[in-house]
């Protein structure tokens, strides 16, 4: 009963946000389509880019076109889920700066879920649709031998990849408790760093690879899970041969770590929260 309510109330809150958003969408239909079109357009441009490159060569660092498309599309899907269900994370800087977090601390629901769930980025729908379509298309071209185990693995890795992105979003946005600005500039620039993980990371210098594997593990949103599903191996980093596939299989652990880090930093930050007027 207690567990049910813990999960249930954030959903109620989210449903309300969604309802408000849908009302707004109906009121400003043009806006809705502009935003949807923009998010699809932005991601489509990336796809055209890959397509142009691969029309000239069969692979980049041993990755074929459709495999790279999977890496690319995983970033869209993770961002799409992040926008559609957890867009509120990006409002944290505003909430902290204006003292609006106060009321969330006075309700018997976890403040983290109140912050994260109470906004809906409808553009996430565009990302999710396009990303899903691209993954579907890729898989139909890749002739993977799907066993039950591999399907289960792929689903587990997909969920973990999404959770990694959401955890990282929360962790970077928790910087709002330390950096007093109404805009989440730091989190946003980190988000853009994540764009590096749209390609096989083996193309980068070792330091850059280490950065997005260890320091801010964006590579676990796309590159490593894809590597595990495609049974890739042979990753040389700074002259050391690393088992690429095993890194991919570690994605669930990284996801747990990132989410834990997000919650930890949020709670740590909450101790410093100064409310408004100080």
């Amino acid at each position: 009963m207690v567990v049910a309510s813990r999960i249930g109330r954030p959903i109620v809150l989210y449903a309300r946000c969604l309802a408000v958003q849908i009302k707004a969408v109906l009121e400003y239909q043009a806006d809705f389509w502009i935003l949807m079109m923009a998010s699809v357009l932005m991601n489509l441009v990336g796809f055209v880019f890959l397509w142009t490159i691969f029309s000239k060569i069969p692979d980049v660092d041993g990755w074929t076109f459709w495999q790279v498309v999977v890496i690319y599309a995983l970033v869209f899907v993770a961002e799409g889920v992040g926008s559609l269900f957890f867009e509120g994370t990006w409002n944290l800087a505003f909430l902290v700066n204006r003292g609006e977090l106060d009321f969330m601390l006075l309700r018997p629901v976890s403040p983290i879920s109140q912050v994260m769930n109470c906004a809906v980025g409808i553009n996430g729908l565009g990302n999710l649709l396009l990303g899903g379509t691209l993954i579907g298309l890729s898989l139909s071209h890749l002739h993977i031998h799907w066993t039950l185990g591999r399907v289960a693995l792929a689903l587990l890795l997909l969920v973990s990849a999404i959770a990694t992105k959401i955890g990282l979003n929360l962790a970077t946005n928790a910087s709002a408790f330390w950096i007093q600005s109404p805009f989440s500039g730091f989190a946003f620039s980190m988000h853009q760093l994540g764009d590096l993980a749209r390609y096989p990371i083996t193309i980068y210098a070792s330091a850059v690879q280490a950065l997005i594997t260890v320091a801010v593990p964006f590579a676990f949103i796309s590159f490593f899970p894809a590597a595990a599903v495609f049974s890739k191996n042979g990753w040389r980093l700074g002259g050391v041969e690393l088992p690429l596939r095993w890194f991919g299989l570690a994605t669930p652990l990284v996801a747990v770590y990132c989410c834990w880090m997000g919650v930890f930093l949020f709670r740590r930050g909450l101790r410093r929260y100064e409310s408004a007027g100080n």
Partner: peptide, 11 residues
């Protein structure tokens, strides 16, 4: 500030 500490907003 007192009220906010009593209500748990501030630590």
């Amino acid at each position: 500030t007192t009220i906010k500490m009593l209500t748990g907003i501030l630590v």
